[in-house]
Design a binder for these strands. Sequence first.
DNA 1: AGTTGGATGGTCT
DNA 2: GACCATCCAACTG
Length: 200
Amino acid sequence: VADPRQRRRVGRIVELEAYIGEDDLASHARFGPTDRNRVMYGPPGIAYVYLVYGMYDCLNIVTEPAGRAAALLVRAVEPLEGVDAMRAARTRRLAGRRRLDPTALEAHALRIARLPPSDLARGPGLVAAALDIDRSATGTDLLDPGAPLRIEAPEPEDRLPTPDWTPRVGIAYAGPPWTEHRWRLVDASSTAVSGRRSRT
DNA sequence: AGTTGGATGGTCT
DNA sequence: GACCATCCAACTG
């Protein structure tokens, strides 16, 4: 992933969640096509970015052929290049908060300055913050080698992931069986995966 | 280590 | 008017 204004930012996607079809009651497509989710019905490889909880943008990759609403939520990225730019972007996003007094803002900025790289894009809202992604990126062709925001195939020398499939997170409202499908894919070998940190 | 609640605004019934 | 594909601080044990 690269960006226009700043230095190149690159990372491995280490956590994804699948949302598949209109009958998936956890999916934004569960209401049928709307102004928000329309790109989910289009061709695959396109970015779908939405706002959750009034504060966090989330990046999705449209997956199924046109006509079938589906997407992958990018839940975590392990930074490889441009760590400083990601850190700066995280800090910058904080400054946009309305009711955050200067002292609290400074404390947050300090905390971000001390974060290990593996924490910079650890969670879907943080992926967008670290990479300066917002809803205006919706519609981007992520497979276009010239796009400022894009996904690329791994290099042959890249470390292989350790795939692990788990239930999806934060979708209790959908109820079973949607809460039980193991449609969350993580690279168990990465420390950048979201959720509770193991070890001390 | 685990739980709770506040921030914040768009989206949908 | 309710809910939300989140994150973090502040609390409790």
